[in-house]
Design a protein around this nucleic acid. Structure first.
Length: 577
RNA sequence: GCGUCCGUAGCUCAAUUGGACAGAGCAUCUGACUUCGGAUCAGAGGGUUGCAGGUUCAAAUCCUGCCGGACGCGCCA
């Protein structure tokens, strides 16, 4: 892609002028404002500063050595020392033509593909999935998709909460309070009820608490009956999770729950103790972080005083397993920001445990979803909103909208469109805000047909589909490959659109580098906007000859980028809506 | 109490992590059209980026202090 080419050339020029410079800081990116040029670099200003040199003079020296005559009509030093690259029209046309020939879609596969484990969603067994799981699920899925699109080897893993003290209560409930009819109807709701019944009982009757404790110990010791109950609960839960994942189009390569790591906990703890990383404190095994100002006040327990493992222990064992099984370059943990401290501790312990490991560990954290009142998003009655209900409502609201706009379509088709539009809107609303900020959930805003929403983008895509349907109905043959040589944008709106298409790759890379899908959302929104401008200003089917062919080609390329981009967000594009 | 994150237009959010004049949508007002799908497009008003200092060519972004909010702080996950 052009920004890569320019970046390489710029790095070569910088290396000639400043042989000791760290070239990884020499980057080229699309200009934030087209009036400055097509691409820009601000690298020379910081390089000059570090060396106490005049930035503009240094920039001029580098431009002198820069060999980009084949790509740029002009490279200028601007303002305090920016380098602005102005593309030759032929260079832009060549990129468009290559895309039309099917050689790329404005992005290039990673030169050094990484193996990336993405840990996300992670619901708890015997509990319904609720709004609290939606951000992790959608964000994690999107990051996995973008990384895959860029050619990385991605391993998605659903780290189910399938072990822990709650199973003592659940087994007591299962044995004494189970309603088989209810279980057949809605297994997860029934298991949730069983937990609540027993939990309430334990608060009043210590004998029940003791019974739960005994059942838990039996389960942990491998008692066949309890083990069978646990497996049954797991199976029922997974069936329900799978239904939701199928609706959402989310796929996991592995579902290795916490229980999977039970056999590995002891060894992990023993090693940490033997190596002096953990030591005994108040009967527990604890890791202290005396040399870390932030963690100093927050030691981490890796073995409770009763001898049982906890969350941190399991996560450490999980980390070790992933490392030896998949040899990842990178592991992403997609969870909410309340777990920041936990992951700081986890990563710090791991670095001491495996100082040689070169894996990148990233806690990709996100903020909360709030209701319209700015408080945690709940039902009117104050209950947690179940994910299934949320998806139903999204589809139902979208169905009413589609019916209103397009009443003539058969109901089955309206339902199918409503599914794509409703779920797309829900996902997009979640991916659009900077993931680290809390956002306010709003049905009206997410389903709005104007503004930065999924339906707006889907609509832009359907307009393009419609254009080509019309073309096909007329019986005219269309071949993008054959049109390639004619792709040389002339009208201003064509150029703006073409220019934006070229930035798709840079955007995908930024998403993958910073784990921020909102960059892609905004890119696609701008693309749809530029397309609308173009479509308004430039007739396509009404034209003839070269102009018509060129514009049809631009339309098709835009359609492909829109569809590919939306797909990378996990959003489908309907044929019509 | 300590720590983390945050505070941007009336509202909901951006701002590629220190870059050029802080941008969108909604709402408000004004326009365009014999619809290649009007679920469209153009334009206007609206800002001392919580407050006060500091760092530098450059600060919403970094540092210090205050004000306000959310979250987290050894045996839950």
């Amino acid at each position: 892609m052009l920004h890569h080419l320019l970046e390489t050339r710029l790095q070569e020029a910088v290396a000639t002028v400043l042989p000791d410079a760290d070239l990884s800081t020499v980057r080229v990116r699309p200009c934030p404002d087209p009036k400055f040029g097509d691409y820009q670099s601000n690298a020379l200003m910081s390089l000059a500063k570090a060396r106490g040199r005049n930035p503009r003079a240094l920039a001029a020296t580098v431009v002198d050595k820069l060999q980009v005559g084949d790509l740029c009509a002009l490279v200028e030093v601007a303002g305090p020392g920016f380098l602005n690259f102005h593309l030759r029209p032929e260079a832009r046309a060549a990129a468009l033509q290559a895309a039309a020939r099917g050689e790329h879609l404005f992005f290039r596969p990673a030169i050094r593909p990484r193996t990336v484990v993405v840990d996300f969603s992670s619901p708890n067994v015997a509990k319904p999935m609720h709004v609290g799981h939606i951000r992790s699920t959608i964000l994690g899925d999107c990051l996995a998709r973008v990384l895959r699109l860029l050619g990385h080897r991605v391993i998605t893993d659903n780290h189910l909460g399938d072990w822990g003290t709650q199973f003592g209560k659940l087994i007591v409930g299962w044995k004494h309070h189970r309603d088989d009819a209810a279980l057949a109807r809605d297994p997860v709701a029934e298991m949730e009820r069983l937990y609540r019944v027993v939990h309430r009982a334990t608060e009043q009757d210590p004998a029940v608490l003791e019974a739960a404790r005994r059942e838990l110990v039996k389960l942990q010791q491998g008692d066949p009956e309890n083990r069978a109950i646990w497996e049954r609960m797991l199976e029922l839960s997974r069936a329900q999770f799978d239904t939701l994942y199928r609706r959402l189009g989310v796929r996991f390569d592995h579902t290795l729950g916490e229980s999977f790591y039970n056999p590995r906990l002891r060894a992990a703890v023993d090693e940490l103790v033997a190596r002096g990383i953990a030591r005994q404190s108040d009967g527990a095994q604890v890791v202290f972080f005396d040399d870390d100002p932030e963690l100093k006040a927050h030691p981490a327990i890796i073995l409770k005083s009763d001898g049982a493992a906890n969350y941190t222990t399991t996560d450490l064992a999980t980390l070790a397993y992933r490392l030896e099984t998949w040899q990842p370059d990178e592991i992403l943990y997609v969870t909410d920001g309340r777990q920041l401290l936990h992951f700081k501790q986890l990563f710090a312990i791991f670095r001491r445990w495996h100082p040689e490991a070169r894996v990148t560990l990233a806690h990709v954290w996100f903020g909360s979803i709030l209701g319209e009142d700015g408080k945690p998003f709940k039902t009117r009655a104050g209950d947690t909103i179940k994910l299934a209900d949320l998806l139903d409502e999204a589809e139902e609201r979208a169905f009413r909208l589609v019916t209103e706009k397009n009443p003539a379509l058969p109901e089955a088709e309206r339902r199918a469109i409503a599914r794509q539009v409703g779920l797309g809107a829900l996902k997009y609303q979640d991916l659009l805000p900077n993931r680290q900020s809390d956002y306010i959930f709003s049905w009206d805003k997410m389903l709005a047909l104007q503004g930065n929403t999924a339906p707006y983008l889907q609509y832009a895509a359907t307009r393009i589909r419609s254009l080509f349907r019309k073309l096909a109905e007329s019986g005219e043959a269309w071949d993008l490959r054959a049109a390639a040589p004619l792709l040389l944008p002339e009208a201003p709106a064509e150029r703006v659109l073409a220019r934006h298409l070229l930035n798709f790759g840079h955007t995908l890379e930024a998403v993958a580098a910073e784990y921020r899908p909102n960059y892609l959302c905004n890119y696609l929104y701008e693309l749809a906007g530029h397309f609308s401008d173009f479509y308004e200003a430039c007739p396509v089917l009404k034209e003839t000859g070269t102009i018509r062919t060129r514009r049809l080609a631009l339309c098709e390329l835009t359609g492909r980028v829109l569809q590919t981009g939306l797909h990378a967000l996990g959003i489908e594009t309907p044929e019509r809506m």
